[in-house]
Amino acid sequence: MDFRHYVFADPYFGWLLRGVAVTLLIAVLTTAASLLLGFMVASRRLSRQPFWRTAGVVYVAVFRNLPPLPLLLFLLFGLPQAFRAATGMPLPAGAEFPLLIAGLSLNTSAYLAETIRSGVRAVPTEQWDAGRVLGLRPRTVLLCVIYPQALRIALPALGTRLIHNMKNSSLALALPLPVGCMEVVGQAGRIAGQTFAWTEPLLFAAAVYMTLALSLGFVVSRLSRGAQRRVEVLR
């Protein structure tokens, strides 16, 4: 083991730090995007209109059952090919990173939608009635009464999925991203490509993910303990 030469050496450590930053960026962007998408899909699934309900079901069924890596490969290799076949032009440069974000978010949002929906189902129906009796419109009841409670109920499951989403950023290793957009495992691979030493940078990347996942897990369990208590008071 030679961390001094392969991890804490001049260009390499900078690469790895940049990788950590990109990992965090991917995690933040995909979390935001998939929460947004997840809520949208969940509310479609709870809608009264059969069309929207079916659309929500199909979205979840499609993206929950697709493995993220092949989905990303399709977005980054298959899609440009189809684009070129259709328009005769290559995909604009710099599209890889947004496509990566999109692919990861599609996957995670399908899970989140399902979790949010079951959270909403777990809120007692009397809460609906109580809101409606006060004269609130259904949308207001959903936003101000149901979702806040559902979120608290679903928080542990949401947190687990979002941590998983963060870990999914390592899939970017298998994708043709520009050097600047590589996350920490990708940067580890870059070092391995130059030095033939995989072990040290890889262990560094593992430590980074471990730290992130464990501390996020701690935060989630803290938050959900408080949230659970408040929901219980509500009952």
């Binding site: 870990k167 950023s169 495992v185 995989w198 072990t199 262990l203 471990m210 996942a213 897990g217």
Partner: peptide, 19 residues
């Protein structure tokens, strides 16, 4: 359990093949 769960499968696979 917590340790292995916190490492992405991508890294686990790479570690299994290089370590």
């Amino acid at each position: 359990v917590e340790g292995f769960q916190s490492i992405p499968i991508m890294i686990l696979v790479l570690m299994a093949f290089y370590l």
